[in-house]
């Protein structure tokens, strides 16, 4: 799937202006969000990625993805400027088989790939499970989710928009087999919410 055309640098959008400082700041925001599921991380300093990616997803990729982490990219982005941007700035291998990916970037607006097809981790090495970066229209205004589990004092609520009605049931089935399970980063605009596999979710509302 890798396009073999020569890279046109004049069309390439920049990544982090100061990769060291900006990736550190982005990581701390993502780490805090991962430690506190449901907490909205603000990645306002993130650069603007090409069309098809939002700023939070772009910043997460720049911060976490590199040559050691095969990336599964939403088929809707194949051959796009976004793919070129990720290949250039992250140097990551792009894979077509979901099970080979450490990270996946998925647009919730397109067909959601089967979550069970991603690497769920090994019984002895659950850290090998995939991290899914899912791009949404907004992190508010959707059906309300009640989150409980490690990182949450009692209960916290989020209402992400744009996920298919069956998404959380599909995810719940996978993470029921903890320590197996996938970890989610929900991205909208320049905001990110992390839902690790330990988070127990009750869907309420419309």
């Amino acid at each position: 799937m890798a396009t073999q055309t020569a890279l046109d640098l004049s069309q390439l959008l920049p990544g982090f202006a100061d990769p060291t400082r900006e990736s550190q700041a982005a990581f701390r925001a993502i780490m805090n969000a991962t430690a506190r599921p449901g907490l909205v991380a603000d990645l306002a300093a993130a650069p603007t990625p090409p069309a098809g990616l939002n700023r939070a997803a772009g910043a997460a990729a720049l911060t976490l993805v590199d040559q050691d982490t095969p990336l599964w990219l939403d088929p809707g982005l194949h051959g796009s400027a976004a793919e070129t941007w990720l290949r250039f700035h992250c140097s990551c291998p792009l894979v077509t088989a979901q099970v080979d990916a450490n990270f996946a970037i998925i647009d919730a607006g397109s067909d959601m790939p089967a979550l069970a097809e991603f690497n769920q981790g090994d019984a002895r090495y659950p850290d090998q499970a995939a991290t899914l970066i899912i791009m949404l229209p907004a992190l508010a205004g959707g059906p309300t989710l009640e989150l409980r589990g490690p990182g949450i004092a009692d209960v916290t609520r989020i209402a992400p928009q744009g996920l298919s009605p069956g998404f959380w049931a599909e995810r719940a089935e996978l993470v029921a087999h903890f320590q197996y399970g996938i970890d989610l980063k929900l991205c909208a605009g320049d905001q990110l919410v992390s839902i690790p596999r330990t988070t127990r979710i009750i869907t309420t509302g419309a």
Partner: peptide
Amino acid sequence: KRMIRRAILKALAV
């Protein structure tokens, strides 16, 4: 740092 950061996120997830 990226490698350690990825390990931290997985450590927090499990």
